[in-house]
Nucleic acid binder design. Sequence first.
DNA 1: GTCGGTGCAAATGCTTTGCATTGAT
DNA 2: ATCAATGCAAAGCATTTGCACCGAC
Lengths: 158, 158
Amino acid sequence: MKNPITESPKKQPTAPLCSVFRRFLKSKGLKYTIERADVLDAIIARDGLFEAEELLLELRRRGHRVSKATTYRTIHLLQDAGIIVQALFDSKQAHYQLIYGKEPRDHMVCMKTGRLVEFQSGELTQLRDRICKQLGWTPIGHRFQIYAVSPEGQQPER
Amino acid sequence: MKNPITESPKKQPTAPLCSVFRRFLKSKGLKYTIERADVLDAIIARDGLFEAEELLLELRRRGHRVSKATTYRTIHLLQDAGIIVQALFDSKQAHYQLIYGKEPRDHMVCMKTGRLVEFQSGELTQLRDRICKQLGWTPIGHRFQIYAVSPEGQQPER
DNA sequence: GTCGGTGCAAATGCTTTGCATTGAT
DNA sequence: ATCAATGCAAAGCATTTGCACCGAC
């Protein structure tokens, strides 16, 4: 049987991202500001999943003073530009992930320990495309989360 | 090629649900109240996806006076009981779906028109189980959402 | 010099909570 | 009778917005 998944991240060249964003902004008549660049940099630095509050902290850590309002506004722009997407786990707050130029990355959460594992599955993407084709839809993206119990979580409780 | 999906709902006998809930409550030393029964009934009546506010309306429509607080509290209990799960689409508000005794139901959203289609795919569940097995995890559930453009949405804009 | 952008603080809107009262067992 | 549940209104919190000032083009 074919290996259904390829676990874990491979670093991707991040260089073109800022020009992608720049181009997007220009096409909309919007401006490329220091704050927007800083937000994108912080996101690239984290590379995986992040939430708005974390991003604020990352920005502070790097000595960048970007307001919460601007951070949220930039997150929206980056979504419109197709650079990041939301990846929701609970209704408390939104989680985002960088996707531009990457394979879709899916998530498995342990219901006991909360451990989170990322993986990617080409088979899943194929299945998605097949489902869309069958119904006459054009796929854009997907979100897949598995809820499970990790090996550590299997331990009998005490 | 095997048909990857089976579209759309088949009515399921809903009779045992209330006793499942009743049993769950008893096991936790909690009480089965009229309000809790009313909330579960309203959920069964909708059968598909719902959000808290909609549920309130459904309850009102049926002439049941359940407060917002109790509705939210009951939704949590039903999640703990494994009768419903969250199925998030956006960060604005939580969406829930009835799952007890059903095949997992997944969703496809049109990015242009907002149209929502439910489907179920046994193949997806198999893939999920395979992924879990490979990493030594025990699957509990999953959430799969496809973002796509529906045939109607393909129309050139005007 | 023009707009669009930014920060701040206030506003929003879904969800949760404290508390006095009510009700299931 | 007891202990949990309810309803109400207030509180929480992530996210959004109005507005006066600032800065990219």
